[in-house]
Simulated scan of single mutants.
Amino acid sequence: MSAPLLFTILNVLGTFVFGLSGAMVAIRHRFDIFGILVLSVATGVAGGMTRDLLLGAAPPEALTTFWPMAVASLAGVTAFFFTSAIERFNRPVMLMDAVGLGVFAVAGCRKALQFGLDPLGAILLGMITAIGGGIVRDIMATETPRVLHEDVYALAAFAGAATYAVALAAGVPETAAASGAVLLAVSLRLASVRLGWKLPRPPRS
């Protein structure tokens, strides 16, 4: 599979699963169909829009092409009609969030590198791309953003973006670098939840 095709698939997948996570949060809060679609679209495109604006790629891709909002809307409709099936998964919002996190961390890093950013800047922008949608979703649903209280969240996105950038610099083929980096980020996020990994916190006074 060519790298452009892989990243097209990853972008569609990331938008869809983030859209699903937004829709499921909306359903949990008993939003109506319009509210579900609003939260689904906001979650699916916010990270990419933030990335594009920071890169100076204005207007953002989500506003100039049809597919990002269409895919996120499809995710909202899917969640609306198949809520029971999705909820059969263990912690579906967390699972979809982890997949979207890994996909967008690598896709965001790649686009930043294509725009000429240094690797460190591209890694940071990849992380911002990955966490942006979840932050918007949680704020709109009046929840504390997961990035502020679930420790291995932004860190998993950073690790995925950094792995991709380092692998490319080491001469690893782009398809392998991207696939491995996404898998690492998703695995770190899922493992941190399952195993209860926590970062150091200040002692209580």
Rank of each mutant, 00 (worst) to 15 (best):
residue 104 F to M: 09
residue 167 A to G: 09
residue 119 P to G: 05
residue 117 L to S: 08
residue 32 D to F: 08
residue 90 N to W: 07
residue 198 K to M: 00
residue 117 L to Y: 10
residue 94 M to W: 11
residue 7 F to A: 02
residue 138 D to A: 09
residue 83 T to F: 13
residue 61 E to L: 15
residue 68 P to Q: 02
residue 138 D to V: 01
residue 62 A to L: 10
residue 18 F to W: 02
residue 183 L to A: 15
residue 146 R to Y: 06
residue 146 R to W: 04
residue 42 A to Q: 03
residue 80 F to L: 02
residue 155 L to T: 14
residue 186 V to R: 05
residue 163 T to S: 15
residue 86 I to G: 13
residue 122 A to H: 14
residue 93 V to A: 04
residue 138 D to H: 06
residue 60 P to E: 05
residue 126 G to Q: 15
residue 21 S to A: 14
residue 62 A to P: 01
residue 90 N to A: 04
residue 74 L to D: 07
residue 96 M to D: 06
residue 153 Y to G: 00
residue 175 T to W: 09
residue 170 A to V: 08
residue 74 L to G: 09
residue 20 L to M: 13
residue 197 W to E: 01
residue 160 G to P: 04
residue 123 I to P: 02
residue 128 I to R: 05
residue 22 G to R: 11
residue 184 L to P: 10
residue 110 R to H: 14
residue 116 G to D: 10
residue 114 Q to K: 13
residue 113 L to I: 13
residue 58 A to R: 10
residue 115 F to H: 13
residue 185 A to H: 09
residue 202 P to G: 08
residue 7 F to Y: 14
residue 105 A to Q: 00
residue 82 F to L: 02
residue 6 L to Y: 02
residue 85 A to Q: 13
residue 152 V to P: 07
residue 54 L to C: 06
residue 128 I to S: 00
residue 102 G to Q: 04
residue 95 L to P: 01
residue 185 A to F: 05
residue 94 M to C: 06
residue 9 I to F: 02
residue 21 S to Q: 11
residue 34 F to R: 15
residue 166 V to K: 06
residue 86 I to E: 13
residue 103 V to I: 13
residue 61 E to V: 14
residue 127 M to G: 05
residue 24 M to S: 00
residue 128 I to C: 08
residue 153 Y to I: 06
residue 51 R to S: 02
residue 6 L to D: 01
residue 149 H to D: 08
residue 26 A to W: 10
residue 76 G to D: 14
residue 182 V to N: 13
residue 121 G to R: 11
residue 76 G to K: 12
residue 200 P to N: 15
residue 175 T to Y: 05
residue 192 S to D: 05
residue 170 A to R: 15
residue 13 L to W: 15
residue 94 M to H: 12
residue 108 G to M: 06
residue 164 Y to L: 01
residue 182 V to G: 13
residue 19 G to I: 00
residue 202 P to Y: 10
residue 36 I to N: 00
residue 143 E to A: 15
residue 197 W to G: 00
residue 125 L to H: 03
residue 37 L to P: 07
residue 20 L to N: 11
residue 78 T to D: 12
residue 17 V to E: 06
residue 177 A to T: 00
residue 136 V to M: 03
residue 3 A to G: 04
residue 88 R to K: 13
residue 151 D to N: 10
residue 103 V to Y: 07
residue 12 V to L: 08
residue 158 F to Y: 11
residue 146 R to C: 09
residue 121 G to D: 01
residue 199 L to C: 05
residue 102 G to C: 08
residue 67 W to L: 10
residue 200 P to R: 15
residue 174 E to F: 06
residue 182 V to F: 12
residue 6 L to V: 03
residue 167 A to W: 07
residue 70 A to D: 08
residue 180 G to N: 04
residue 93 V to Y: 07
residue 77 V to N: 03
residue 150 E to G: 11
residue 19 G to E: 08
residue 115 F to P: 04
residue 5 L to C: 07
residue 193 V to I: 01
residue 23 A to P: 04
residue 143 E to H: 15
residue 100 G to C: 10
residue 53 L to D: 03
residue 185 A to W: 05
residue 203 P to S: 15
residue 45 V to W: 04
residue 59 P to D: 06
residue 23 A to M: 04
residue 167 A to S: 12
residue 189 R to V: 05
residue 32 D to S: 11
residue 152 V to N: 02
residue 4 P to W: 12
residue 170 A to G: 13
residue 84 S to C: 03
residue 161 A to C: 09
residue 190 L to E: 09
residue 36 I to P: 07
residue 89 F to R: 05
residue 80 F to G: 08
residue 183 L to I: 15
residue 57 A to M: 03
residue 103 V to R: 01
residue 145 P to T: 11
residue 112 A to I: 03
residue 110 R to E: 14
